[in-house]
Design a protein around this nucleic acid. Structure first.
Lengths: 211, 211
DNA sequence: CATGCTTGAGTGTGATCACAAATTCCTCAC
DNA sequence: GTGAGGAATTTGTGATCACACTCAAGCATG
C-alpha cells in the first residue's frame, strides 16, 4: 500500500492545469477542450469539466458565451488593476512574515533567487516565472495568513499567461533588481524598507507594457 | 422567444447557493448533499456538483475528506484574518470610488442604509446582512475595479455563515454606527476620513467575538 | 470572383448509471 | 441501560450517452 496522498481525478486535473496557467506555460488566448484535457490527463470529461469550472471561477481561464474555454487575454486596465492588488497584498504579507523570518528562511530565498537569476540568463521564461513566484511564496508562507495568500495566488493565476507573454516579448537579461533589496530588508528587520522593496518589485515588471 | 438572459443549470444553482451562503441564510456547519441541492433546484447531480466545486474553491463551502459538503465553521484566527483583509481592501475600493461618487449615488446609499437600520430594529439578521453588503457594494461598484471587488466578494462569502451566527447571537439593536461617517466623508470628499470610516466599520462588527 | 448557405465534425451540457466508501440505524449481547 | 457490531441506506465519484449548439470548410449561386 502506498502512503502517497490520494488525490481524486478532479484534483489531479485541477492542479495540473493550474500549474500550467500560473507558470505561464500557456500563451494568452490558448484554446482548450474538455475532451482534450480529459485525454491528456487520462480521465473522462466529468473531472475535466469540474477542474475547468473551478479555474474559470478563479479567473485562470475564461469561457466564451458558447462555453469555449481559453486562457484569458487581459487588457491594459485589468493588468494594472491586478498589479495594484499585488502591490496591496504582498507588502502586507511580507510585513507579517518579517518577524518570523529567521536566517534559514532567508538563505533558502537566496538559493531560489540564484536559480531565478540563472533562468533569466538562460532566457527561460517559464522557469523564470516559476522561481520568481517560489521566491515570493517562500516568504509569504511565513506570514501564517492562509486566506490572504490564497487570494494572492488567484491574482498570480490570472496574470500567468500575461506574464509569459510579457517576459518572452521583452527578453530581459537582468535578474529582478529588487530581490536583493527584499533580502537586505529582511536581514535588517526593516519593515518599511521591506514594504517598499516589495511594492517596487511587484510594480516594475509590469511598468513597461504598451497598451 | 424570451429576451431573458439564459443561464445554464449550473449557473442557477451556483448563484442560488452563493446568495444563501453570502447572506447568512445557512448556519456554520450546515450540511448539504448533491442530490438534495439538485432536487431543490430541479436539476440533476451534475450541475449541482459543479456549483459546489466552485463554491468550495471560493471558500464558501468546505468539503470533508470523504467529500461531504458543509458550510464552513471558522476559527477565531481565520475570522480575524478575513476581517483584516476586508480592512485592507475596502478602504482602497472606497477611495477609488470617491472621485466618481456623485450625489445620486450617495442618496441611493442613504436609502439602503435606512432599510438596513430597519432590519436591525426588526431583528432580521439575513436582511441586515444583505442590506449591509448592498450598502458597501453600491459604493465599491463605482471604483471600477472588478478584480478587486471580486476578491472582496469571496471574502464576504467566506464570512457569510459566521456573520449570521454572530448577528443572531449578539442581537444588536443599534444600526452600524460608522455608516453615517462613511456618508459624510463621501459628501465632504475627504479621502482620509473615508478610509478611516471604512476600516472602523469593517472591524467593529467582529470585535467582540469570543474565541 | 465574391457571397451566402449547407453540411459535417467538433464541443459543451446535463442526465443517468454503476460502484465504492461512508454514515446511519438497528439489533443483540453484556 | 450501554456499547459494539453489522446491515441497509445514503452519499460522492467518474464514465458514458444523447442532444443542441457552434464553427469552419466547401459548395453552389449570383
Amino acid at each position: 500500500m502506498s502512503d502517497l496522498p490520494y488525490q481524486s481525478a478532479h484534483d489531479r486535473v485541477y492542479r495540473g492545469l493550474r500549474q500550467q496557467v500560473m507558470h505561464g506555460e500557456l500563451a494568452p488566448g490558448h484554446a482548450l477542450t474538455l475532451r482534450g484535457i480529459g485525454k491528456s490527463f487520462g480521465v473522462s470529461m466529468t473531472p475535466a469539466r469540474e477542474a475547468v469550472r473551478r479555474l474559470t471561477a478563479e479567473g485562470a481561464l475564461s469561457m466564451s458565451a458558447s462555453g469555449r474555454v481559453t486562457t484569458p487575454e487581459l487588457n491594459r486596465d485589468r493588468i494594472e488593476e491586478l498589479a495594484s492588488i499585488r502591490a496591496l497584498l504582498e507588502p502586507e504579507l511580507a510585513s507579517r512574515a518579517l518577524r518570523r523570518a529567521h536566517l534559514a528562511l532567508i538563505d533558502r530565498m537566496e538559493v531560489i533567487n540564484e536559480t531565478n537569476a540563472r533562468a533569466v540568463y538562460r532566457q527561460e521564461p517559464i522557469e523564470y516565472i516559476r522561481t520568481n513566484l517560489e521566491f515570493h511564496r517562500t516568504l509569504y508562507l511565513r506570514a501564517q495568513s492562509p486566506a490572504m495568500l490564497g487570494l494572492l495566488e488567484t491574482v498570480w493565476l490570472q496574470l500567468g499567461p500575461t506574464m509569459r507573454a510579457l517576459y518572452t516579448r521583452l527578453r530581459r537579461t537582468t535578474a529582478p533588481p529588487h530581490h536583493r533589496m527584499i533580502l537586505e530588508a529582511l536581514r535588517a528587520g526593516d519593515d518599511a524598507a521591506l514594504r517598499l522593496a516589495l511594492r517596487m518589485d511587484v510594480t516594475q515588471g509590469l511598468r513597461h507594457l504598451q497598451g
